[in-house]
Computed example of a mutant assay.
Amino acid sequence: MSSSLVFIDGDQGTTGLQINERLRGRTDLKLVTLPAAERKDSRRRAEAINACDIAILCLPDGAAREAVDAIVNPAVRVIDASSAHRTQPDWTYGFPEMSPGQAERIATARRVTNPGCYPTGAIGLLRPLLNAGLIPGNHQVSIYAVSGYSGRGRAGVEEHERPAAVNAPSYQVYGLDLAHKHTPEIQQHAGLARRPIFIPAYGAFRQGIVLTVPLDVRLLAPCIDGAMLHACLARHYAGAAHVHVLPLHESRVLKQLDPQIMNGTDDMRLSVFTNVEHGHVLLSAAFDNLGKGAAGAAVQNLNLMLAQ
């Protein structure tokens, strides 16, 4: 059986390096990358992408669009790790656990767009609850998240790991214009009728994410409570290999959330915390922004596509 040819365009970036590491040594595929002198050569990049079976794009948005535009070989399949195509209707959203049948759609797709790191957590929490009618589509949702500095890419890593890193900020909230580029992606794929309020932050740790969604159950339909929301998530992800829902009895004894708890894995942990007296619920997602939030998701999608 011949090996599939996989071209990683942008293999020296944070996500590209992680994907390369995960795929190194596999015998079912042959990795293709360009030498340093040819990485910005549009002709050589076009040749490489048109000669492969599956291209994985780890590029800035503009460069990702250019790479796709250069494809003339109809047999080439693409996984785009940038945000260039995440809300495009002719691209398949690469979150296999998002809804029934999504893994099958990814497996047969020609164009797959990898989810953003923050949207992975937000959609993972919200989509099943909206689909079940437990949260109405027009509910005003607020989302708070903190990521490791590698979420900024190479610039974040250099700022925190260079010799003068002692001056790097320990924590910074950003996106204060409330117009973060992930917000439309979250709204569309979670199924929200109203634009969510999304407030992201970076911490002084390399990788990992904790994302939270606070809810007042008194603003939801009567009888809905934290246990019902938890049960819905548990049913939705039952048997999922890479998304796990923490049992309620375990979340009740937790005193803090560690954004690094899932580092080094390609998995995501979802939790539900409740305060019955005040009618408050906190939904949370913890995962590695370089794992399930980026490279791990790309490899998961690649494996589905290779199985066809």
Rank of each mutant, 00 (worst) to 15 (best):
F7M: 04
D9V: 02
G13T: 01
T14H: 12
G16T: 00
R22Q: 14
T27N: 13
T33I: 13
L34N: 08
P35Y: 03
R39L: 07
R39N: 03
S42V: 06
R43W: 04
R44L: 07
N50Q: 03
D53Q: 01
A55Y: 14
P60R: 06
A67Q: 06
V68P: 11
V72R: 08
N73W: 11
D80C: 05
S83G: 04
H85Y: 14
H85C: 06
T92W: 07
G94A: 12
E97N: 07
I106M: 09
I106E: 10
T108Q: 06
T108S: 07
R110P: 05
R110F: 12
T113E: 13
P119A: 02
G121C: 05
A122V: 07
I123C: 02
L126E: 06
N131G: 09
A132T: 11
A132E: 08
L134K: 05
N138Y: 13
Q140N: 13
Y149P: 04
G153K: 04
A164D: 14
A165N: 08
P169D: 13
Q172E: 10
Y174A: 01
Y174G: 01
A179S: 12
E185Y: 09
G191F: 03
G191D: 11
L192K: 02
R194F: 13
R195K: 12
L211Q: 02
P214L: 00
L219W: 00
G226W: 00
M228H: 02
R235P: 13
R235V: 15
Y237G: 02
Y237T: 02
A240L: 09
V243G: 11
H244N: 10
L248F: 01
S251R: 01
L257R: 06
Q260Y: 02
T265I: 12
D266Q: 15
L270I: 12
L270W: 14
V272G: 00
L283Y: 01
L283N: 00
D288P: 14
D288G: 11
A295D: 12
N301W: 13
L306C: 03
